[in-house]
Design a protein around this nucleic acid. Structure first.
Lengths: 223, 223
DNA sequence: GATTGAAAGAATGTCAGACAATTGGGTTGA
DNA sequence: TCAACCCAATTGTCTGACATTCTTTCAATC
């Protein structure tokens, strides 16, 4: 018997496409926090019907990527400092665990992928393309999370980070932040490569603390 | 200027009511894992239109409480042992943190509430009403989570626990499990009351390990 | 001039109905 | 027994409609 291969290609529905497009738009900071999303506008923009759009919006609402107030409709959440702090705290909890696990179980192959993604970030960091910085940095982390051995942890971390993507994007264009990030990420990589769980957690903790401080700064100046 | 008071009473929409009803139905084990949810049936049952139902289903899908496969529609997830293990691992991570924080910051008043909920569980544990057991146990935890000082942590824990509600409900009706749970929860309460973070974490860890084992047993026997 | 109030306009919440595409299952035929 | 085929059931999506609820504008009043 041949190995089980899932030949079925899941058809992409309009609602899925819409969720992806909107999520991407939110990530790239296309909407200001607090701004409202008018259904009819989005429908016209995306070329879809209102029911399909509304389904997509409900998905995003459940992911906490948008707020929906009855009779007022959807809007981009305007995070308070308290919320952002709370998110970073939980992110740290999840991420330290993931990095620690990753350092003890990552394969040679994946470690190489991680190294490549670090190089990609290095390149982006010295460029002016802040979108590329965000993307390559995200790749670096997604490889770590994919190798932590716990898909739930991975999923929750992704959901959490998504909620602060706006300020992460902002802070990545802060002067000096990218270079600083690079050094921190390299430290994390080295620790993982050495299989040193404790060092990996420590480096990761430092990185998050700095990222948080940067996000906070960009939050205060941004509005 | 008077203190800010939110006088607005959020109107409850059909979709919200529907999400709540379905969530409750899932929690109480009304649907077998793996069973499919037919839209037209649910519409008739709930007395709502298909668009409204579909919005509600998208919310539940984003919460991972149901699966939706394109062209096959919604169904109750049938967790694998691996997924359940992964969920319990993350639950432990979140819950230990929450219990630890709670032990250091809970107020006298809330501590009293916690004690009351423990008593309520004690009563339920010695009864035969397994739904009451689940509910009172959930109350106990929700008080702890509400007092951990981090609403995000609370929210993520709630979402995670919701996904294993089926097997938790099953395991609560396992012979001896309720009494055992009671002892473990009392230990957690005592540690919190004493403000002993380390003991609280330890007691909580033990509780989760046992709960996991019980859920696993009920999972293997249940299908 | 500032505040209140009312009315018009815009946006949302919800429904009914329709139709094409896909799935699942049963029947037929080899 | 197994394969191909066909049909009923179900989902994905759209259009259109209407009542309800916000927003904003503008006028009237203090």
């Amino acid at each position: 018997m041949p190995p089980e291969i899932n030949l079925r290609v899941l058809p992409r529905t309009v609602q899925q496409e819409t969720v992806d497009k909107l999520r991407l738009a939110i990530f790239s900071g296309m909407f200001e926090p607090g701004s409202r999303l008018v259904e009819s506008h989005l429908c016209a923009e995306l070329g879809i019907s209102r029911p399909s759009l509304r389904e997509a919006l409900r998905s995003l609402q459940a992911e906490r990527l948008i707020d929906i107030v009855p009779n007022r409709g959807p809007s981009i959440p305007a995070l308070t400092l308290e919320e952002m702090t709370a998110i970073y705290e939980v992110r740290e909890l999840l991420e330290l665990e993931a990095v620690g696990r990753c350092s003890k179980r990552i394969s040679k192959d994946q470690l190489h992928e991680l190294e490549k993604s670090l190089s990609a970030f290095e390149e982006a960091a010295s460029s002016n393309d802040s979108l590329a910085r965000v993307k390559t940095a995200a790749d670096f982390y997604s490889i770590i999370l994919a190798n932590c051995g716990n898909p739930i942890l991975e999923e929750m971390h992704r959901g959490l980070v998504a909620r602060i993507s706006f300020f992460r994007a902002r802070s990545m264009s802060l002067k000096g932040r990218a270079q600083s990030s690079l050094a921190e990420m390299r430290e994390i990589f080295e620790a993982i490569a050495a299989g040193d769980e404790k060092a990996a957690r420590k480096a990761s903790k430092k990185h998050i603390a700095k990222a948080k401080a940067a996000a906070k700064r960009s939050m205060e100046s941004g509005s």
